[in-house]
Amino acid sequence: MFNLIRRDVILQKKQLLMFIPFILFFIIMDAHPALIFLVASIFIPFNTYAYDEKAETNILLNSLPYTRREIIASRYLGAIVYMVLAVGVTSLALAAFNKSFSMTDIAIGSGLFLLFAALTFPLFYIFKPGYISAAVMIGFLFLAGVGPRIVLFIAEHTTAITDFIASLSTPALYTGAAAAITALYAASWGVTHIIYQRKAF
């Protein structure tokens, strides 16, 4: 299984050269640190899908001594592994440029990444290859652009929820969010697992 996770690095050697300039671009543009953590985390796991959505890749992986359970597990565990690595590299880059960031930024960036991954990973196994990568990327940019406004809109118009959230203490808020995201990630894993078991190649 470790091999399946390591595979992503071998596949993306060339793209990885882009990784650093990619992060630096965001840092120089003075983007919010949480956003940089999010974007950096997305880089490897979603690039992998550009390969994995191809039927041939699935035929190859499933003909090797791996089970379908392992293939999906490597996606979900791999995303976490690469997220941690990306956060590490990004932290170093931020520190090198003397940009301040907090643990909260890391938590928000990682949390949003996991949320995004949980929502989109199953789609890669539902939709036809060729469309999904583009759809997810557009979806991401759209959400990044419009998402905050929607949240603000909801916050203003549904005061009951806002009041409830505001009434929570900061630790409770973070713990709650972490628990919710973990649960969603686990549920997403379960759904993808079931979809993949039934897939024909």
């Binding site: 596949l11 390969y51 041939e56 890749t57 035929i59 190859l60 003909s63 090797l64 001594p65 791996y66 089970t67």
Partner: peptide, 18 residues
């Protein structure tokens, strides 16, 4: 599943490698 596939060598019609 794994024990079986350990013992199989496969060659497909088209290229399945990256």
């Amino acid at each position: 599943e794994k024990a079986i596939k350990e013992r199989i060598g496969f060659v497909y019609d088209g290229n399945v490698f990256f």
